[in-house]
Design a protein around this nucleic acid. Structure first.
Length: 434
RNA sequence: GUGGUUGUAGCUCAAUCGGUUAGAGCGCCGGACUGUGGCUCCGGAGGUUGCGGGUUCGAUCCCCGUCAGCCACCCCA
């Protein structure tokens, strides 16, 4: 057996590379439509950049090592700390709000599974310097349009949207103390994966982490679905209306953009407990058979914590792995594009110099051209042209040359016509532009 | 990192109770096809049955280990 790539790392053969290029292309074009600017940082960073944000525990999930200068370094597992550093360094000089995106390869030392590798590409989008809910709506709209760009509609992908402020108000109203909030977030986050017995213990109070009856009320909060139900619960809670106002404005804005049909209000979306302060959302395939496609939210304190500049921010990240799987599943992964426009074929050995001259002339004009690299029958050459999915073939033979012509074949339309040799380049350019 | 499960040709799969030389389709290469492609027909290459060990007269098949994929847990920044 040949040596294989390391576990969780991929070889990109042309077909897979074509999908990756397609994904990157649509990511870039969609971000551009929202006025986002592309940037990048180093793939290798000081280890402290990540331990400062997440603690020493994450080292177990990093590709870290000591470099030849004795520095503790790590391949980047995420981009946010790099963004924070870069923004902090020049925040004073940048017009707000800042709209940035980046496409880069990330590395995490984790056990791989479907949709989770040790190396992946991630699109990061951050909108910094604006605390208002329209910024949240803008970011969510971008995430939705990134799905629509691939042909994925509301029947294929769903945004599950929550808000840390709403969840906090409802949990406090349910009797969860301030100190118990982190535990309650953890419970809600795990609810879908908990055994029925554990849920029952929460329901009937055998789970003693919360006060009497609080567990059952927590389950009621977690079961709320849709904005009307959540808003009704907020209206019945002290301070609830104020806590729910930003989420309401986000939903109104998304509705005005015509994207409301993608969004499900669902408070069980918790995500990383550490730093989200408001809106929190994840994108899933509608059948929920895959991992989350994307996730993000508002993290108003993080840039200050990491970079020392107090800027509110909202953002998200999308990986290429789950998205790629979904595109395959839905038949939305494009076939690799044809690599050549024109195949130049000669009939006899004496035609070869003319084939080479024409091929090079066409290449100089920017056309993609291939020809047979050894003497072969015309049928064989055209088979190759067909396999390459060339749109046209030019056939040069002794009879054609005697008349100063070449045969120009439209391989898709199955038509052929004689063209003066001097005008074939212009004819091909014209035909390929249509 | 823990537990479970699956590994046969480039891909998708077959191989009787443990039995002789591990097969098929697709793909690839060559030919039919010496000035015309997609079709068809013929032929060929390609396998240490993931790897290592054990049981057995004999192992793709049973056992152990290991590596890899998948599933769950963990984690999800």
């Amino acid at each position: 057996m040949q040596p294989q790539p390391l576990p969780g790392f991929r070889d990109f053969y042309p077909a897979e590379f074509a999908l990756r290029a397609h994904i990157f292309d649509l990511w870039r074009r969609t971000c551009a439509r929202y006025g986002f600017e592309e940037f990048d940082g180093p793939p290798l960073e000081p280890l402290e950049l990540y331990t400062a944000k997440s603690g020493d525990e994450i080292v177990g999930q990093l590709y870290n090592f000591i470099d030849k200068g004795g520095r503790e370094v790590s391949l980047r597992p995420e981009l946010t700390p790099t963004v924070a550093r870069m923004v902090a360094a020049r925040a004073g000089g940048m017009k707000k709000p800042i709209r940035w995106f980046s496409i880069g390869q990330m590395f995490r030392y984790e056990r791989q599974q479907r949709g989770r590798l040790r190396e992946f590409f991630q699109l990061n989008c951050d909108l910094m310097g604006e605390p208002g809910p329209l910024a949240d709506a803008e970011i969510i709209a971008l995430a939705v349009d990134l799905m629509r760009a691939f042909g994925l509609g509301p029947a294929e992908v769903r945004v599950r949207l929550s808000d840390r402020r709403v969840l906090q108000a409802l949990l406090r109203g349910a009797g969860v103390t301030e100190a118990q909030l982190p535990v309650a977030y953890g419970v809600i986050d795990k609810l879908e994966r908990m055994k029925p017995e554990q849920v029952a213990e929460l329901q009937d109070g055998r789970d003693t982490r919360f006060g009497p009856g609080v567990g059952a009320r927590l389950l009621q909060v977690a079961a709320l679905r849709g904005w009307p139900a959540v808003r009704a619960a907020l209206d019945a809670t002290e301070g609830g209306a104020a806590a729910g106002a930003p989420l309401g404005e986000v939903l109104d804005a998304l509705g005005a953009m015509g994207l409301a049909e993608f969004v499900d209000v669902d408070l069980t979306i918790v995500r990383g407990l550490a730093y989200y302060t408001g809106t929190v959302f994840e994108l899933f395939d509608a059948g929920r058979s895959l991992r989350a496609i994307a996730g993000g939210g508002r993290y108003d304190g993080l840039l200050n914590q990491l970079g020392g500049v107090d800027l509110p921010a909202v953002g998200f990240a999308i990986g290429d792995v789950v998205l790629g799987e979904l595109l395959h599943e839905r038949g939305l992964a494009p076939a690799p594009p044809a690599a050549v426009d024109v195949f130049a074929a000669g009939v006899t050995a004496e035609d070869l110099p003319h084939v080479l001259r024409l091929a090079h002339e066409l290449r100089d004009q920017g056309l993609r051209v291939e020809f047979a690299l050894r003497a072969e029958g015309l049928g064989k050459q055209l088979k190759l042209a067909d396999a390459r999915q060339a749109a046209f073939a030019v056939v040069i033979g002794p009879d054609d040359r005697a008349r100063g012509e070449v045969q120009l074949k439209d391989l898709r339309g199955k038509t052929q016509r004689a063209v003066p040799a001097a005008t074939v380049a212009a004819a091909l350019r014209a035909a390929l532009e249509t």
